[in-house]
């Protein structure tokens, strides 16, 4: 456990990045973990062709793990010129890496993947 609540997670949870609403978003995606009530809403702007994500923000509520995971995911997408198609190949391991974790207990996997499974709903 002491390995779980590391600096990255605590810092990202306390000061999440890209949090807020994009009023004129092209895509609004909602995800919820029914078993714990954690939720995120992701706002995306895409280019004219609908391929490249040009802006991302999100709103959400939940545990430190789900919220920090969403924070680092949004930052990766924002700073890396990601296309809508590339989102589909993101995995649990990618997010763990962003959080500086090697593994996660089975009970917390859904926390880590809430953001990524929500953003994968993006289809144009």
């Amino acid at each position: 456990m002491n390995d779980l609540y590391q600096e990255i997670i605590l810092e990202e949870a306390k000061n999440p990045r890209n949090k807020g609403k994009i009023e004129d978003a092209d895509l609004v995606l909602k995800g919820v973990n029914a078993s714990c009530g954690d939720q995120v809403t992701i706002y995306l702007k895409v280019d004219a062709e609908g391929k490249q994500i040009t802006d991302i923000s999100w709103e959400g509520q939940g545990c430190a793990i789900s919220q920090s995971a969403m924070s680092v995911l949004s930052e990766k997408i924002k700073s890396n010129q990601v296309t809508v198609n590339q989102i589909q190949s993101l995995t649990l391991t990618d997010i763990l890496e962003l959080l500086g974790l090697e593994t996660i207990s089975p009970g917390r996997i859904k926390c880590v993947t809430l953001g990524v499974s929500t953003i994968k709903k993006a289809r144009l």
């Binding site: 456990m1 609540y5 078993s35 714990c36 954690d38 939940g62 430190a64 793990i65 917390r108 926390c111």
Partner: peptide
């Protein structure tokens, strides 16, 4: 969040329930 509370308590051997 209750899940974070539960996880930290677990690290001390204390089992509780978190959620709805």
């Amino acid at each position: 969040h209750a899940h974070d509370v539960g996880q930290i308590l677990d690290s001390e051997g204390v089992a509780v329930r978190s959620g709805h």
